[in-house]
Design a protein around this nucleic acid. Structure first.
Lengths: 218, 218
DNA sequence: GGCAAGTTTGCAGCTTCTGCACCTTCGCTC
DNA sequence: GAGCGAAGGTGCAGAAGCTGCAAACTTGCC
């Protein structure tokens, strides 16, 4: 989710990333301890040892520092989706496109568990997280429309994408709630399987959750 | 969605509702014309002929005036869900619980079409709309858990609710995009039917959208 | 008419966020 | 290794969002 990556960058850019990470980290820790409104941008900046003005050079909003970078994810997901063979059904294709991002979240589990804890405690941030994904959703809808031969204005593309997003969000919240006990990928796959089975009421078909159109991978 | 209701209230409360509506209306019209950042709270208050301070007596945020009242919806939906016979499968139950609210939105179509137009153009607001529903989601999860005999911490309740929300949101956006050409209830039912069928890829099963577990009503 | 409760308003004040100008640092070239 | 241009950091001024408080005004009721 964060740039991270190899250190194949100049000292300058490395420092930038450090500062960015320091700010995001300080923001998360402070807000986790005290609550969103009990932490000012100035305090966050101080903790990261930069001026408040500099904070706004990195994040356009206090909230942004907390929810992280959605732009880089967008490209990643789109690229991944483009790589899924076109005959794969839309819902499955979306799930597969998400695996890369899911793995990355899992890889930075500490950061993300903290982030989700903070986000869940402040619905405004949850909203912001969703908002950040609005652009991603829009792009995904286009791609899905293309794959299925429908218009982006049809119900189906928007619906699959929205539902896929809901499945991912639910999984992440649950993952965080469990403190990362189960792997995120597992939870996501389970959620997509249930959705693919049409969300059967567990009383009527208590087994469907495990079957569905689950994919052996992962 | 707005209190509306009969005039079985004192002059005082009626005036309050008028002011509230005037503020929300002014906010929506101005933002629709100029964009979110080009409208100040002071301008909205002026347009509604009250002081800026009074604006904040009604809405705790500029955004709140735009997205409307989610609290009253919550109760309505919860009450409606309580009235759905417990043997109705969760997803269907949720859809039925939404009909009352859906009808009300349809009844105030002008207001809501404007609102959705504004909201769609400002993802932050869309997010806010979702955030406002966070409390509703939480409450719904409890109820669904109860109905299905699962724990609120299980995946299923959170997932059905989140997916139901996604279906509703998608439908409202599409409804607004079409300028209200088709009835919202129709779109919502269609969306729930597709979801209930497991979101089959339209290429693989091009008919499923129309069938699914659709309910004759509406 | 007059009181109690509820509403509106102005004001002071804090925080978020932006534009601008200045200064420092970095990376590169000659 | 001196020097130059670009990029990053910072301070300051100021607009806008939002809150608490206390004064003024309305309304509902006796």
């Amino acid at each position: 989710m964060t740039p991270g990556d190899p250190a194949a960058l100049g000292r300058r850019d490395r420092k930038k990333q450090q500062t960015r990470a320091a700010l995001a980290d300080a923001a998360l820790r402070l807000v986790d301890e005290r609550g969103l409104d009990q932490v000012t941008v100035e305090e966050i900046a101080d903790a990261a040892d930069v001026s408040a003005r500099t904070f706004f050079n990195y994040f356009s909003t206090k909230d942004d520092a907390l929810v992280g970078d959605t732009d880089s994810d967008r490209e990643r997901v789109l690229r991944a989706l483009a790589d899924v063979p076109p005959q794969v059904p839309a819902l499955q294709a979306i799930r597969q496109a998400l695996t890369e991002v899911v793995d990355e979240v899992q890889g930075e589990a500490d950061l993300w568990l903290l982030r989700m804890r903070v986000v869940v405690q402040h619905p405004v941030l949850l909203a912001r997280l969703v908002a950040g994904n609005a652009a991603t959703e829009k792009a995904l809808i286009e791609v899905v429309a293309d794959r299925t031969g429908l218009s982006p204005d049809d119900t189906y593309p928007a619906l699959v994408v929205a539902v896929g997003g809901a499945a991912l969000r639910t999984s992440m919240v649950r993952w965080a709630a469990s403190g990362g006990a189960r792997s995120l990928a597992e939870l996501v796959n389970e959620a997509f399987a249930v959705v693919g089975a049409g969300l059967p009421d567990p009383r009527t078909a208590p087994d469907a959750a495990a079957s569905g159109q689950a994919d052996p991978r992962v």
